[in-house]
Amino acid sequence: MIPKLLKIGVVHFAGCSGCQLMLLNCEAELAILAQRVDCVDASMITSATCEETPFDLLLVEGSITSPSEQQHLQKLRLRCRHLVAVGACALTGGINRFDAPTRETACTHVYGPVADQIETFSPQPVANFVAVDACIPGCPPEHSDFLDFFGALSCGVWPTQRDAPVCMECRTRELRCLLEEDHLPCLGPITIGGCAARCPALGIPCEGCRGEVSEANRDELCHLMAKTHLSKSELKRRIQRFTGGENV
């Protein structure tokens, strides 16, 4: 059984903190959320920190980029009952993975001459180091992702994990298909829905920020997107942006 008042924490690794901000931005629901959860440690939400107490639930945002972060994460895992990976960085490495082909240059650029004394590695998803109990996708996640999540949790279950693509929501909203009609490089067919086709509704092709559906047909989408103005390598980078580097 999940206790009534969940002791939660939000921990931040390499990322922009947008996920945490998005949670904080659920303004209309914060008061009621505060009756469900006791936020004991979260850099943007409370100045309290909690060094020892166990968490019922730990939300992890950001990707892991150094041995010290890795150790910190592993210690936290021992302190929490449930660990939830939140957002593209935590789930796949996110846009941080774009360091991949030019990592050394990037490090020298950021850290200067001491770059080789700082121990870092290419940004990794949280699940590469610890067991993950649930995922909240998005870059950043929608308000509804957080609210559905805490809603489900308040009855003691995890929310239903979606695997239907953005296209389904796009078509049920009766939006114009940007891929079919306008030959724009829309990633809707291979991206997990849940955003109600936020971008296509504004005439912007889906960027894939919610990550890939489980059986994404990348080859065919690349083939289709060859009709757009993008070059092969641009297409590849577009698909890789939120799904983690080299697996395309």
Partner: peptide, 25 residues
């Protein structure tokens, strides 16, 4: 096939549904 689901979204005789529970705070 991209498994985008569009063919049955637009089909006037496709009627499959899933049951999804949603709980408010």
């Amino acid at each position: 096939c991209l498994a985008c689901g569009v063919c049955s979204a637009v089909c006037p005789t496709c009627y499959c549904y899933d049951m999804i529970d949603h709980t408010d705070l």
